[in-house]
Design a protein around this nucleic acid. Sequence first.
DNA 1: CCTCGCTCGTTGCGACTGCAATGGTTGCGG
DNA 2: CCGCAACCATTGCAGTCGCAACGAGCGAGG
Lengths: 149, 149
Amino acid sequence: MGDHAPEAAEVFDLGAFLPYRMAVAAERLSVGMSKRYRDEFGISIAEWRVLVNIADRGAVSVRDIEREVHLEKSKASRAASRLEAGGYVTKAVNAQDRRLVVLQLTEAGEALMAQLARIAMAYQARLDQMLAPEIAPLNRAIDRILSDL
Amino acid sequence: MGDHAPEAAEVFDLGAFLPYRMAVAAERLSVGMSKRYRDEFGISIAEWRVLVNIADRGAVSVRDIEREVHLEKSKASRAASRLEAGGYVTKAVNAQDRRLVVLQLTEAGEALMAQLARIAMAYQARLDQMLAPEIAPLNRAIDRILSDL
DNA sequence: CCTCGCTCGTTGCGACTGCAATGGTTGCGG
DNA sequence: CCGCAACCATTGCAGTCGCAACGAGCGAGG
């Protein structure tokens, strides 16, 4: 028995552990955005990613979304369904390959996207400014993490 | 090409949007770790954070965990319960303030923690090496994100 | 033509999540 | 001493998640 003592010596410094730090930082960055999206427009992060992808490419399938914006396919599928229910997206069958879905923005979807894009760009500008000194190496580091490993 | 189609002009470049980039990068970093923790030890990320916090501080409450390692209190509470069920942690009532819980590692918990810490430190070393050129500014950027905003 | 292996999107399932509400505890102000 | 606001941990709930399984569609090979 004896020492139930504190082991004060740092067993492991979570505050210096990169995966933890990145996760917390990423959540911080998302939270402002996503809260605003959710409260003001009823849009989740997954839905936002789907929206952007459709806006960029005009017509996409669930598979495309999965590949392009890192959304597991069931998540992409459900996000698309919610967007359809909200009237922002239409879902159709691809005539050339009837396994594929064709997702496209409605007018409401385009309008929404325009608003969200404005907010996002303003946010990005603020971040760029705030991180000015280290934005370049930060982006290099992220690129490396995304490509390697 | 009577295209009403592609709007090719980039509406919004998600691939350059920092919150998105950070989220994907953070997930990448976590995935290796968390998969291994899960498969080999049955431990989730939340449980891992709780474990580290207890290991570092000897005896903590749910509130402490919430503050120290960014876990919403219900999440911390449930993670602690799972760890208790797994035999890694004991839960008791703080005698000075009976609202508080006292979480402590069992011997099994300490043994587990030792293993996880070794894996984590090896992973951290690998990341440090991989990101050597930009690790310093990366850490500055993360610190700025965590403190500001 | 039919079969077989593969792809795509959806859905069932059990687990997990955040949030709000709950029950229990404390300590301060009167 | 009492009442009451603040605090702590847990839990109910409805929504979401990841994974595996599924049905439907495709196309190559015989």
